[in-house]
Design a protein around this nucleic acid. Structure first.
Lengths: 253, 253
DNA sequence: GAGTGGTCTAGACCACAGG
DNA sequence: CTGTGGTCTAGACCACTCA
């Protein structure tokens, strides 16, 4: 990071700074390396700390940097590709997936969940919490909604709640014939509980994957999975498991 | 938006403010309505304008608000669902898709594009620019990379560049047999040119969809499509065109 | 020209990690 | 304890839209 001056240009300082830093990351830093702290960097480029932070935020959003309070700013490794919906005709909880059931509660559906499941707004749904871990890092938190009517044979007091109960619900689900599923992806911000599970601050950008599991013309279950947007690249493999290996396209200006 | 005071809580002010505003949006505002300006809102909640803006940024990221310089802040309509990869065994440019070819140039591939296409780094590729319009709004900008070797029969001087040339490349591509494709989705920020095409500022959050088109064991084309993250929900329909109609799950804390 | 959101500054204090 | 990033303030000026 040779230069110390920012020439006067019509484009915003933070954006220009982002570009300069991005190039410096490519050429002068390696993965895991720690950057100078924000106050030093701001002074070095002759800008206010807030302006520098705006540039760093961009780079963090793009998965180039990782910032941790009390520690520092480090160069992030390339995003990990996590496959979504590849197990296309498989229920959640099928052996071999890397989801880990954490909890299960039986509660009333929220309005939007009830709509998606096409059930009455007061019907109870099993709400299974799972988390997905890849390469030792938590990448996603999921809420899986299973209406009582989808698993009528579930033993009543097998276990009142907890991971064991979650596994029982998933087991029951697999007895149904899965006809299809549809996925949607959108940008969101982490709720406080998801954020904790993902080791991020509340409001961190996440990719929300909503999956409906269809069976016999109705929606048997609804999954809302929250992926860390900074570290994840979601892959939808439609071509028999071919994997993309190279780094993602750089989005630099 | 009745209250004027923010009680002291352990959570950040901007986050609490986001929640308060989000609830106000649900109950007291309708789509398209204009909010009070930022200076007034900040005063009303007793915070600095920067803090208020942090809350507004969150809500804009979540697709709840739309801000336009010189105009104001309005309540955004629900995100539009745009299907991606539903035309699963179809080449880009097939009749019926809502992409509009804009330009085509023949240039050397960048390193990452060449890697994805598995070609030499100095091979020339046709670079087709297209834009996608839904409901009258631009939702995506795409760069489609087609190596010369994928369309060897392309008439040499059909048209040197421009939309006509783009259509010619797409036409040639459709003569190949498409074996499959794989998609990846990740978060990015809009480059200056994409931003202009999408009617956003540089750095705006976008969902980057990377698609490889496979034929006879090799990658015949690569598409990098940039969707507005604030207004779009990407749908991956694997279930025969069933559509999700209800509003997305609210990500409120 | 008046009013909006977008950028930027120079400070302050807080929450957290680590020695 | 020190050092880090996270939050917050109270200003200023700029770029843009629209009447």
């Amino acid at each position: 990071m040779g230069t110390t001056q920012l020439e006067s240009v019509p484009e915003p300082k933070y954006w220009h700074l982002r570009t300069v830093l991005s190039e410096a990351l490519d050429s002068e830093f390696s993965v895991g390396e720690i950057l100078p702290n924000e106050r030093d960097l701001a002074a070095r480029f002759g800008v206010a700390r807030a302006t520098l932070r705006q540039a760093l935020e961009q780079l963090e959003l793009e998965g180039r940097l990782q910032r941790r309070r009390g520690v520092g700013t480090t160069v992030a490794p390339p995003r990990v590709g996590v496959s979504v919906g590849t197990e296309q005709h498989a229920w959640p909880g099928t052996v071999g997936d890397d989801w880990q059931p954490a909890d299960c509660r039986l509660e009333a559906a929220s309005a939007s969940v009830a709509d998606a499941l096409e059930i009455r707004h007061d019907e109870l749904v099993h709400t299974v919490r799972r988390s997905r871990v890849t390469h030792g890092q938590p990448v996603a938190a999921e809420l899986l909604y299973v209406p009582q009517s989808s698993v009528p044979a579930l033993p009543a007091i097998d276990a009142p709640s907890g991971a064991a109960r979650a596994r029982a619900v998933l087991r029951e689900l697999q007895r149904l014939e899965l006809e299809g599923q549809d996925n949607a992806v959108e940008l969101g911000s982490a709720r406080a509980d998801d954020a904790k599970q993902l080791d991020r601050l509340p409001g961190a950008p996440v990719l929300v994957v909503t999956t409906r599991f269809l069976t016999a013309g109705r929606t048997a279950a609804l999954s809302v999975a929250t992926y860390r947007a900074d570290t994840c690249r979601l892959t939808f493999g439609d071509s028999g498991g071919v994997e993309i290996h190279q780094a993602p396209e750089r989005r630099a200006s």
